[in-house]
Amino acid sequence: MRIAVAGATGVVGRHIVAVAKERGHEVVPLSRATGQDVVTGTGLDEALAAVDAVIDVSNVTTMSARKAVAFFQTATRNLLAAEKRVGVGHHAALSIVGIDGIDASYYAGKLAQEREVAAGDVPWSLLRAAQFHEFAEQMIERLSFGSLTTVPKILMRPVAAREVAAALVDTAEAGPSGRVTDLVGPRDERLVDLVRRAKRADGRRGLTVEVRLPGAYGRGLALGALRGGGEARRGVVEFARRQRA
């Protein structure tokens, strides 16, 4: 197959490229570095010519619902329009488990993306996955102030990005399937514990404090909405320390 990967240089995108190549697929990476921009639509038609499936793991870093919705709606519409024009037969997207009741902040953008995919003209598949192992390191980088790290209260089942990548390549190979079985990690964890373990592994000192965020958003995180349901498929790779790609 000829598979295009939107967000090919990101945390999971790099693994998708590697897994797909290992399985003998031809991979077309979509990124600004290779001349494609999902926000403006630049270069998409040319890159998607003769592509069998697109795996979309493009992303934006923001806590603003407005910015997240704008990015994911625009990127998804541009990809789907280009796919329709050149005849791509399958659009596979990655979303997040448990966000139905957390239509706020970044998750509002992911829900908007899901709606665009389902309403589009290109046959589709959607995989929801739990937070990646790398999420702990991202929180350290974003939420540390000197030696203090403040971490939102989140109950989660972190999953290896490599396992998510393999599941997305499986999905592309299977053809359009609608909403496929969610993928989560093998164990229940608290984000604060993962951050502390990652800091110790890196030799970082200082206090790590767990805080509960306000409103329905914070309540959903604290009560474990992001763990996914009991019907989710469990990955096998456990979080051990800071994960590197």
Score class of each variant (00 low, 15 high):
Val39Lys: 03
Leu48Ala: 01
Val117Ile: 13
Leu44Pro: 03
Glu137Asp: 15
Glu141Leu: 14
Glu141Ile: 15
Pro176Cys: 00
Asp100Asn: 12
Arg128Gln: 00
Ala198Trp: 11
Gly35Thr: 06
Arg200Pro: 13
Gln36Met: 10
Pro214Val: 04
Ala70Met: 11
Val54Trp: 00
Pro214His: 01
Leu48Val: 03
Ile16Glu: 11
Ala112Phe: 05
Val12Tyr: 15
Val51Ser: 04
Ile55Cys: 05
Val195Met: 05
Arg242Lys: 14
Thr74Arg: 12
Glu114Pro: 07
Ala47Trp: 03
Gly224Arg: 04
Leu44Asn: 08
Leu143Thr: 09
Arg77Ser: 12
Gly215Ala: 10
Asp121Tyr: 12
Leu207Pro: 08
Val27Lys: 01
Leu30Gln: 02
Ala18Lys: 11
Asp100Glu: 15
Leu148Ser: 03
Gly41Phe: 04
His133Met: 01
Phe239Trp: 05
Gly235Ser: 01
Gln138Lys: 14
Ala167Gly: 09
Ala49Ser: 13
Glu238Trp: 05
Asp56Ala: 00
Pro158Asn: 09
Val28Gly: 03
His133Trp: 01
Thr150Cys: 14
Val97Trp: 05
His25Pro: 07
Val86His: 08
Leu155Tyr: 06
Thr9Leu: 02
Ala104Cys: 12
Glu116Trp: 00
Tyr106Leu: 12
Ala119Tyr: 14
Ala136Asn: 09
Ser125Trp: 06
Val28His: 10
Leu79Asp: 10
Ser144Gly: 05
Gly229Arg: 04
Tyr217Pro: 09
Val169Ser: 08
Arg200Leu: 14
Leu226Ile: 10
Arg187Glu: 13
Gly146Arg: 07
Ala198Met: 07
Leu111Lys: 07
Val38Thr: 04
Pro29Thr: 03
Arg200Met: 14
Phe132Ala: 09
Ala222Lys: 09
Gly215Asn: 11
Gly203Arg: 03
Leu44Ser: 04
Arg197Pro: 10
Leu94Met: 09
Ala240Asn: 12
Gly185Met: 00
Gln131Arg: 07
Tyr107Val: 14
Ala47Lys: 02
Asp202Glu: 13
Arg234Ala: 09
Glu22Asp: 15
Ala81Ser: 15
Thr9Ser: 13
